[in-house]
Design a protein around this nucleic acid. Structure first.
Lengths: 219, 219, 219, 219
DNA sequence: AATGAATGAGGCTTCATTCAT
DNA sequence: TATGAATGAAGCCTCATTCAT
């Protein structure tokens, strides 16, 4: 609950409302959340929510937009331009995992809530959600490119990989909820370690080869 | 819509209602779905739904229960008892992925809907959901055990791995929605291949070792 | 207020609701009327109104439709087919005035309320209202036709005359409100008498002629 | 929208607000009109409206008052004191029709809106409306008086006639809306012509007599 | 004088749930 | 068994109106 203070400029209030909304939406879900409850959590009255955000759906959309921006920003700012593509991939993914682990409410709203509201829901929300997935996808795509233009995996598989990463990150949300002592950093480390061990274990020297995809030459 | 036929035995009707409910819940989400809509889809009147399932939440719980049963059954029946633990792990996971890919509605209700309904939601639903996760976790745990009682990864990490698997499978739901041409089988293959390549690529012979966890002796 | 009685068939309730709505709308106006108030007057609860009529606007539209039907029916049934056009005109107008005077609530809703709701109001309402005006117009048009196909006044003027009749009838609504002792019959007589006297007084034998409009022959 | 200009004297602002209000009220109706919309149309902020006019109803009342004044003034200034009563009647009515036809917004607010707001509405508005009707009534009464103090029609019928005139004028509002090419002058001419033809047609030399009402002599 | 910020009150609408046949 | 009829409760949203600067 925001400490009550009267007569704040619009921009400040707007952010406070979005803050409150993210908390409430992530806790009880979009439909169960009432605008009244959100308004109270933000320390204002219902009409203000409508004056600033237009509607419950508008409020939700605003949440999605802001959190999407934050996540994209977190990932981007982790990418040093002088790194190798592979380094960039790992650093980007690490930043992504850290964000998800460290901003559970944001992520729950962004991923779970935005996804489980059925068909006839705002196109805008879907688009904002896409921006996040596109960012991760781009990261994976550029990170699995070879210097000669070939690819470790196909572009389509890279997209799939991005989805899997998101889904995995999402699953971790619950795990963190049930293990409150675990820090986001620990979690990230754990995941990386699991990947490393998995890689080691299932590596068979004589297996069908790394499956590299060369760029088509000629036409 | 179920073709109308009067005087069916209770059990049949009940299943028809649950069928309809799974369809509707998966399409529009728990809260947006109205009991009326479900009753219509099931070809009966609203009061019957209440006579059979007690309440909207009871109906939802019934859905979760039945689909959880189905999923667990699908995984279990794929496990040959004469296989090695490692084989059992892969076969179980494959069965799991196949189920998710082939029964999207079931999975959406079981995983997405059951998760995105916030805090004050039925304990029963949470438990049914847990049964699924426990099944996968057991699969991973037994599949990462060494003959001498040691473990490739810790039990806690195995649990984490199970979550990741579920999250990944969940993400594929969307992917399938956007690529209708892909069959569940193709998808499963793709995922396995990605895992294999990933393993190959990031394996470093000199790395810190396989991280095997030995069972504590004594104490 | 309808005497309360439970479990009535839909058709009956629907008419009761419309009855109540016409009363309330005519008394306090469309916007001031609350659905709650109407429901109470009809002896049922709010949701029933929505189940049967869909929305406040739907309810209003239903009122307009029903009252328009009644008015048109009242006028039509007054027209004997073996009368001269001129007789039909007077008889139709008399029936019209009688209806307006005898069903003030119906008329207020049909004419005043439907007219004063601004621009973005249901097209349906406008159409129903038009049916009434068209009926009167047709009456006037056929009543001012000459046996040889010529016309006493032009069609356009006939339309105007119909409007004037409606406007005049409307004004009488207020007058009746302020003179409760006057019966519809008296009022109708008065109006006719005024018209007759007016005709007599302002008739100038040498004036510019009756202004008959002949049908165009040839072309 | 009034071009914005700061620091105008109160009276000017007040008129601008009333101007805007008449426009908006006539377009969308009293209830649908929001104070915000009117304030915007007047180029000032909401609180100013309240400072100047007190309340929404106060604003509406002010509109009615001003437009009633204008209409009365239009009619009065058309009456030459040296004319015969009958001439005054016709000239007054012509001025009245011209005003209605030429100031549709004013009339709609004054007549339609003020009338369709139901029962519990400002007494003040009703009174202002009455002033207009009284003016017309006085006109008709004095115009149907005979030199010897007798009357062509009874006072009560004169009042009725005034109402009819208002209702007819009101109906013409819609007609003008649907025939934008017609000028107020044309319309007035048309109406007069219809009256003249009607008079001619229905005059029967042998009819019951002109129905003159002699003043009661003695008591 | 002027306005951005804020709200109490109230209306429309929906829906899970029950009643009476 | 089966259902049309009915409602209590609650949520979204708007608006006239006021406060504090």
């Amino acid at each position: 609950m925001v400490s009550k203070q009267r007569r704040l400029p619009r921009q400040v209030r707007e952010q406070q409302v979005i803050d409150a909304a993210v908390q409430v939406f992530s806790r009880v879900g979009y439909h169960t959340a009432s605008v009244e409850e959100i308004a109270e959590a933000a320390g204002i009255s219902k009409p203000m929510v409508y004056i600033y955000l237009g509607s419950k759906e508008g409020l939700f959309t605003a949440c999605i937009h802001r959190e999407a921006d934050r996540l994209v920003e977190a990932v981007r700012s982790a990418l040093r331009s002088d790194a190798t593509p592979e380094q960039r991939l790992w650093e980007g993914l690490r930043a992504f995992f850290r964000f998800v682990a460290g901003h559970r409410e944001s992520w729950k709203v962004l991923y779970q809530q935005a996804r489980s509201q059925g068909e006839p829901f705002s196109k805008e929300v879907a688009q904002a959600r896409c921006r996040v997935m596109d960012e991760i996808t781009a990261l994976v795509v550029s990170g699995t490119e070879l210097p000669d233009g070939g690819r470790i995996i196909s572009t389509e598989d890279a997209e799939l990989l991005a989805r899997i990463a998101a889904g995995a990150a999402d699953a971790l949300t619950d795990w963190l909820l049930e293990h409150p002592r675990e820090t986001p950093e620990d979690l990230t480390m754990r995941v990386m370690e699991i990947a490393r061990i998995g890689a080691h274990r299932y590596y068979r020297p004589g297996a069908a080869g790394p499956g590299i995809v060369r760029p088509r030459t000629g036409s």
